[in-house]
Amino acid sequence: MTLLLTHYNYLVVVVLMMAGFFIVIAQGNLVKKLVGLNIFQTSVFILYISSGKITGGTAPILQDGITAYSNPLPHVLILTAIVVGIATTALGLALVIRIKKAYGTIEESEIQQRDHTC
């Protein structure tokens, strides 16, 4: 039980990650796949940020009279990762638009069908 209390943040991470990952694999709709991928990535962001938090600490901006700051390094890493995430999403969506134009559908099963018939 204490484990649940001290690790609740990580549990959120695990649930979000599993949900996102499931959507990516199980969904046939390409846009939804990308939404799932987004959720999957966000869960990793929370994992990193959680690791930087110190109880009683404040945001890592130096001020007089404050001694405990949260660890800035994970924040920096995740800033980078968020940007990478949106870059991937944008490229993926652009691909979806082109696929819709070329195939007339964005359902995985239908695309595979159309590739095999011609």
Binding site: T42, F45, S50, H75, V83
Partner: peptide, 20 residues
């Protein structure tokens, strides 16, 4: 998720996540 980050003192990250 942005407000989640604020709670964990990651204001810069929250700002970015809010925008993105």
């Amino acid at each position: 998720s942005a407000s989640f980050f604020v709670l964990m003192d990651a204001v810069d990250v929250a700002f970015t996540e809010a925008a993105v």
